[in-house]
Nucleic acid binder design. Sequence first.
DNA 1: AGTTGTGAAACGTTTCACAGCT
DNA 2: AGCTGTGAAACGTTTCACAACT
Lengths: 207, 207
Amino acid sequence: MKHIADSTVRRLSLYLRFLEEFERHGHATISSGELARSGGTTSAQVRKDLSFFGSFGKRGLGYGVSDLIASLRHILGLEARWPVVIVGAGKIGAALAQYRGFGTHGFDVVGVYDTDPARVGEALNGVPVRPDAQLEADIAALRPRIAVLCVPGEAAQPVLDRVVAAGIRAVLNFAPAALTAPEGVTVRTVNMATELEVLAFALTNAP
Amino acid sequence: MKHIADSTVRRLSLYLRFLEEFERHGHATISSGELARSGGTTSAQVRKDLSFFGSFGKRGLGYGVSDLIASLRHILGLEARWPVVIVGAGKIGAALAQYRGFGTHGFDVVGVYDTDPARVGEALNGVPVRPDAQLEADIAALRPRIAVLCVPGEAAQPVLDRVVAAGIRAVLNFAPAALTAPEGVTVRTVNMATELEVLAFALTNAP
DNA sequence: AGTTGTGAAACGTTTCACAGCT
DNA sequence: AGCTGTGAAACGTTTCACAACT
């Protein structure tokens, strides 16, 4: 398949959110224009994004809401559930482990790991915090496909290396660190400092 | 000034992180190539990013680390501290309020707000949780420039409208909702579901 | 010799505009 | 008549390559 832009995939995810909303409201069809308005983009952009994967609409009518939901779930790889491990049971890790949205969107937290013996044994939303030393064995046994890193900045690269060695190929990093991973491993970093600095820049250079 | 791409601003923030690291290690100068290697980009990209704002290096030598730190802090608007309010003292809001990185990067949490009387009065990292009804009055009094939204999805748009009406022009949104704001208001949304779905897509379409 | 700063070229993404289908 | 799907055009971003400078 032709390479798909990151921005396109992010918009597909957004479209899916709105379609689910539309379905709850009982709408059966939707046009690219309506979808665009919800997502802050244009109708041409919506049609182009979808066109990379096939044609899902009916000319003159628009898209069937539930059909398009099914197509998007297929495209995004959401037909099966994804097991996830969270590494780090500090404030952020614990908050994420208890976030209901994980489960409702098809992701299952199968383990939370921490080096602090005081935190091990605690149960977060039904998932027990396990010793960090167990990480590799559990990845081998439970076969999670995604790791979420919520460790201190200086621990992030070593933990990334460990989960990659254990077979993980997708990582969501909340640690304040820029990470390097081998080819074939996808890492997305959410960095609070960068987000705030982009806002500070916008405010500083406001009209 | 010519419009600066979002991607450029994000990289400038990253460069600043690395330069601070370099300074702690006692390095006095750095070349665009070294900076690029740390940040996962190219030397041409580093030079181009900086060139939008002026010329900060010495040909044949590279950049003075502390000079470039000062320049980047100036460009990003980090010479004064930025007061911030956090709306929502649930798991994520509380975790953020206690995150030390806020303070060390020049942002001061001046208030945390929640509708739940059980949470009001609690102190998070020295900042008391105040009643949601106080939000407008406190924004008027304390003049924060940035609001961080950690409320449930359905509350996000109403809260955004309130903080905008009260004078806020930059918002970091952790609520699972796509928000619309008037011209002149910058909103950045960090959406867990989207981040995970981008990873699921990458895994599904792996080589 | 080494590295910056920057126009020009290459590349990628978004928007346009319309043929084609319902 | 109305809306999709899509090549082509416009636009934006990154990479190249080299003159300018230390």
